[in-house]
């Protein structure tokens, strides 16, 4: 199969409103992931209305209470309602996931495409740097970056946490997008654009970037889940969100790590929430990949 075929030609011709319908029809499993994602977004927007308790409110009368009619998912060591904290926790999870994945993937996509188009020394230097970054596990890069940047909070969201995760995913994305762009660079339609005497900017913007959209979109979705996981891991080792914010990662660490053997519900539900969210985004990413890859079309 020629390289041209590995790009989403099927998508190009349809009108915008037909696309979601086509996606749902062809990828019903991924649609399940989409529903979970929409529910999470809904919970994040309407947390005030949905949560039965104030997530910050300490109820010293009901510390470490097991799930009951009053507290459906129990309470933590400060007597805070776990369900309410879970609902509010969708906010940092989604924001950190979306923001860091978007920033990381977009940076990677631009660097990768530019590197591939210009080739030569530019490419060599960029890829050398990427290789060096890739000698480090993503989480090590994220931990070091988070430690270097310190904290810079706006509300419940730590901007530096977002930056740390974003920076950690850039090398991987750069790699993938660069190889996709390299394949496109040598396709006849890019040659034809050169023969047409178009400028480099026009060729990159009009003829190459739209055609790396597929790998970009797939990675964007996939990395949202990874970013949520990374965020939770960083929080677990004390570099992410800090008390008393309602955050899933936080609900798995600190006090929870000390008490979970006696009160398993403290970690059971937040862990499930993380898993479910990451699962949904991965499902969506996989569905997108299959949908955009004509090998799976028929």
């Amino acid at each position: 199969m020629s390289t041209a075929e590995s790009f989403p030609s099927r998508i190009a011709g349809n009108r915008a409103f037909e696309l979601p319908a086509d996606f749902l029809r062809r990828q019903p499993v991924a649609a399940g992931g989409l529903i979970v994602i929409l529910l999470l977004i809904f919970a994040a927007i309407f947390a005030e209305q949905l949560a039965p308790y104030d997530p910050f409110e300490n109820d010293y009368g009901a510390m470490l209470a097991a799930p009951s009619a009053e507290h459906w998912l129990g309470t933590d060591s400060y007597g805070r309602d776990i369900l309410s904290r879970l609902i509010y926790g969708t906010r940092p999870a989604l924001v950190i996931g979306f923001a860091s994945s978007f920033i990381g993937c977009s940076l990677g996509a631009v660097i990768g495409t530019v590197s591939a188009y210009f080739g030569g020394k530019t490419d060599l230097i960029i890829m050398r740097f990427v290789d060096i970054m890739l000698t480090m596990p993503v989480i090590v890069t994220a931990i070091v970056t988070a430690a270097v940047l310190g904290r810079n909070r706006i509300g419940a969201i730590d901007l530096n946490l977002v930056a740390a995760i974003a920076i950690a995913v850039v090398p991987t994305v750069t790699r993938v997008v660069r190889s996709a762009a390299l394949a496109i660079r040598d396709l006849p339609y890019v040659d034809a654009a050169r023969v047409s005497g178009f400028s480099n900017t026009r060729i990159v913007l009009r003829h190459m970037l739209p055609n790396v959209a597929a790998p970009y979109l797939i990675m964007l979705t996939g990395f949202i889940g990874q970013a949520i996981l990374l965020g939770a891991a960083l929080t677990y080792v004390g570099l992410g969100v800090s008390e008393p914010q309602p955050d899933w990662g936080l609900m798995l660490s600190g006090e929870a790590a000390n008490f979970y053997r006696e009160a398993p519900w403290m970690i059971l539900f937040p862990g499930l929430a993380v898993t479910l969210a990451v699962f949904a985004f991965n499902l969506m990413g996989d569905g997108l990949r299959d949908w955009l890859d004509p090998k799976f079309a028929d």
């Binding site: 993380v274 898993t275 479910l276 499902l283």
Partner: peptide, 10 residues
């Protein structure tokens, strides 16, 4: 896929 979604520390 759950294997990819479960945080290893959890």
């Amino acid at each position: 896929m759950s294997g990819l979604a479960i945080p290893s520390f959890w």
